[in-house]
Design a protein around this nucleic acid. Sequence first.
DNA 1: TGAAAACTACCCACTTTTACCCACATCTAA
DNA 2: TTAGATGTGGGTAAAAGTGGGTAGTTTTCA
Lengths: 139, 139
Amino acid sequence: MLLGQYDYSIDPKGRLNFPAKFREDMGDSFIVTRWLDDCLVAFPKEEFQQMAQLLMSKGITKNRDVQRFLFAAATEVEPDKQGRILLPAKLREHAGLDKEVTIIGNMNHAEIWNTQAWNQRQEAMDTESIAQAIDALDF
Amino acid sequence: MLLGQYDYSIDPKGRLNFPAKFREDMGDSFIVTRWLDDCLVAFPKEEFQQMAQLLMSKGITKNRDVQRFLFAAATEVEPDKQGRILLPAKLREHAGLDKEVTIIGNMNHAEIWNTQAWNQRQEAMDTESIAQAIDALDF
DNA sequence: TGAAAACTACCCACTTTTACCCACATCTAA
DNA sequence: TTAGATGTGGGTAAAAGTGGGTAGTTTTCA
């Protein structure tokens, strides 16, 4: 269960720390790729493979742009002994990652945000509609 | 059944006592996250997982902001031998927790308030509309 | 093709934060 | 009154986060 928000900064060597609490769930190496709302997503390898398989099972020519979106940008990363990962420049560009980075847990995957973009996103959230959505769960 | 109000203060190390009477219901470790009206909520792990599953079952990209609201702020806490929990700074900020804290029981979950905010909330309650809501239960 | 530059993967060192332990005062119930 | 539970404070070791050195590899460009 990936939960919580963690703020890090990319160091001069381009390394980005990855939350220690996530490492067990994410495994030794995991997949990072583009995601919606201009952030990146990190999936445990198994989850990513499962999603990929589902997508491909719909047909290799179906959802071509979805395949391209997800797979062309994807990269497998393996944290170093200190738990840091190195993201390809392309991916950093996609999410506008330069210095301040926020990593958030989202149950079965993590999202990697430019901290400023994340803060703006949070501030723009409408609590009333969130309350409605929670009620709609019928929990 | 979580009931009652308990006042504690956060110690210099950031630790917050959690009501002994709640511990059995909450289990060995439980989930604390943001909630509405600028307080925090504590759910037993099972309850939280159930809610999370409901939310995720609607689709991993559906309700993205609701997921982020709940999961990015969430943290699993495990009381120490004395029954205290350590809340991440972000969560403390969300609820304006600095020193005086009030924890209240709410049947299947607990709420964590800045004591002053809680008192104000109580004073601002409109007994007439509460009476109406109770009547509307047709109990 | 070959040398310089850039990149990467390992190291190690240091600071900060967290987890774990023990002590003790206060409260509660038999 | 006393034993056990509860709440508060603090010490210390381990974990997490950050910075940097260096050697080996790849890339770049003349």
